[in-house]
Design a protein around this nucleic acid. Structure first.
Lengths: 125, 125
DNA sequence: TGGTTATATAGTTATTTATTCATACAAATC
DNA sequence: GATTTGTATGAATAAATAACTATATAACCA
């Protein structure tokens, strides 16, 4: 409760140094997993709690097959956990940094849009 | 210098609430921009300083045409700035949260790989 | 004006992948 | 065992796009 996430800016800047090629590909792949609106929708339903496939299908409007495939992909890549209970299969977020990345990116995208909008308004007036 | 970036975990969890469809698509699109190793390579060269297209081409091994297209794409989407000076064209990171997202994701991916590795070692022994 | 340099852009190809439909599998219940 | 329910998967299709080649643009210089 009231947990804080803190990072030193200097530490961030070191990101550019000495990252081997395979790591770069792995990072790109992680971003690719987050680059589909449908998967973000699914991830969003998992933010609060674990969910069954059917629950997800009901919350977002998508076919069972499609949701199942996206979940399988995310599970294979270790960003969601799977828990079976009888017929049902519960999925949950495996790594909170996923949510964090989504949050950060959302904020940044919103700010970006706002900047462009205010620029547009300046030009118009 | 010594700047810190802090976020409340509770704030992050609110990400799932009331985000309109277009925002989700915009966020997905931002992630898609970061989902190509070649673009990450380019971004990495821009971490320290602005760079000309040729400088980037020389640093990473890629064709001028390809680098130029990636830069154009990133510029169109507002994640790099462009500054012309004579014949040369200098690009730079438009939004530090990009670097931050890369850093976070890299860390998370590394931890994920380490977890899988230690799990594998447990299974083997 | 002609030539050189830095960057951008068409057109093309090959690859990836999200989605759909149909079906398979597997656990529970009758 | 047969049926129902929840989930996974294979095949097919359509759309997106990274990379290449060749060419265009545009600024600088002789």
């Amino acid at each position: 409760m009231g947990n804080k996430f803190t990072i030193e800016e200097d530490e961030v800047k070191k990101w550019n140094l000495r990252m081997p090629e395979e790591m770069l590909t792995a990072v790109a792949n992680r971003f690719k997993l987050l680059s589909e609106p449908m998967r973000l929708k699914i991830i969003r339903t998992l933010c609060e709690n674990e969910r069954t496939v059917q629950e997800i299908v009901n919350e977002i409007s998508a076919s069972q097959a499609n949701v199942s495939k996206h979940l399988a992909l995310m599970h294979d890549n270790g960003i969601v956990n799977r828990r079976k209970e009888g017929l049902k299969c519960y999925y949950s977020i495996a790594d909170n940094s996923i949510i964090f990345a989504c949050y950060l990116t959302s904020k940044s995208v919103v700010e970006n849009l706002q900047d462009r909008l205010s620029w547009l308004q300046k030009v118009e007036s």
